[in-house]
Amino acid sequence: GYILFGPADSLTLFSGLLVLMLAPEFFQPLRLLAQHYHDRAAALGAAAELLDRLEDLPDKAVQKHENVRNADPGAGIVLDQVSAGFKPGQPVFSELFLTLESGSVTALTGPSGGGKSTLLHLLAGFLKPDQGEVRIFGLAPGEVRFGWLGQQPFLVHGTWADNLRLTTPDASDVAIETALRQLGLGGLIDERPEGINSPVSESGAGLSGGQGRRLSLARILVANYDLILMDEPTAGLDPDSEVYVIEALHKLAVQGKTLVFSTHQPALLTLADHILSVSGRGQVLDTSRGGGHYE
């Protein structure tokens, strides 16, 4: 047998459309419940990992604070017979020996996937070498304060000032506004009635990619780091944003900061004292005048 469905005399086009429009609203509580359930599960998993990492935080925090005071910026950066890679048994670098002078500007060039980011992660302490030793101003990576600028801006929900005070909680309003204006963001501040206390979202809504990157760089200017590491600081920026970033990096170089960045942009190479070509075969070649060969 079979069953016939409709058409029903009482179901008009208007009532049918009304049912279709109300159906999502009817099921919305169930969708929200499922979404919150997954968010809760993700939060519990993240909280468990954070608690494990924070168990020994007080002792480590004291140790790092003491090490920062004992850092010797004049010692420069040394990678001594370092072998490292992200995949076991597939080292990007094998017994690499490399020295960078304190206060120098070093540009890392080379093909994508050649090892530029790996080298930056070694210097930052994000990646530990399989063998050998990395020394930053006489200390191990992670024991020295440094500024990091990735390809994606790191922003938190709050105000412009909140974002710049993430690493320097006691920064004054004057220092924050000076850093923002130095990076060409003064016009945006003036347009907003609340100035540096204007809200900004974690996703940077209302800001272009270049503006978000400059906001992150302003945080580094306020923190006054001796070492600044940057992964493609001008990649994907509009010409105006690129000019402001290059000018800011030039001022940092004049102040004697140690800068290491990866780039494919010729304009950034003009700032560099050393241009290191990372070949992807575990070799680093200094292509600047008087440069050497490292492997």
Results as ranks from 00 to 15, higher is better:
E143H: 15
A42S: 12
R192H: 15
V245T: 15
L183G: 12
F5I: 10
P129V: 15
V68T: 06
L20Y: 09
L221R: 04
Q255M: 09
H36M: 13
E95R: 15
D190Q: 11
D162I: 08
Q28M: 10
L119I: 14
G147H: 08
T287C: 03
G85Q: 14
A48M: 13
I275W: 11
P239M: 00
A43S: 06
V174S: 12
S208I: 00
E133C: 13
V156R: 05
T270D: 01
A267Q: 11
R145K: 09
Q81P: 06
L271W: 01
L180P: 04
N197V: 08
F261C: 01
E242I: 00
E242T: 13
Q265S: 14
P7S: 09
P29W: 05
L108A: 03
R214M: 09
L166R: 02
D59T: 09
G282F: 08
H250Y: 09
G147F: 03
L18V: 13
L79F: 09
G6S: 12
L155H: 02
R181M: 11
V62C: 15
A253F: 12
N163P: 06
A218S: 11
Y37W: 10
F26C: 04
V92F: 15
G132Y: 11
Y244H: 15
H274A: 09
N70D: 14
D80Q: 05
A48L: 12
P58S: 13
L50D: 11
M21Q: 13
V62Y: 14
G256S: 09
R135G: 08
S83C: 11
I176H: 06
T167K: 02
P141Y: 04
L127G: 14
G1D: 05
F93C: 09
V284R: 02
L166G: 02
D273G: 08
R214K: 10
G1K: 05
A161M: 05
G115A: 08
D238Q: 06
S112I: 12
A140F: 07
S94W: 10
L127T: 11
L13M: 15
F126M: 10
L32Y: 07
L32V: 14
A34H: 10
A175C: 06
E101K: 09
M230N: 03
S104G: 10
L276S: 03
E49C: 04
G125V: 05
I275H: 15
I246K: 07
L57S: 08
A41Q: 00
T168A: 00
R40L: 04
I196N: 12
Q90M: 13
R40V: 05
G89H: 13
F126Y: 12
D231M: 04
V200D: 07
L271P: 07
D240K: 00
E143M: 14
L57D: 12
H250D: 08
G290M: 02
L183F: 14
E295C: 03
S15Y: 10
L215R: 01
L155R: 04
P193Q: 13
L252D: 03
D240G: 00
L33Y: 14
Y225A: 05
F154K: 03
A235C: 00
S102W: 04
D39L: 11
R53I: 02
F97Y: 06
N70T: 12
Q255K: 10
L108T: 01
L215P: 01
V78H: 08
G204R: 08
D238R: 00
L51G: 14
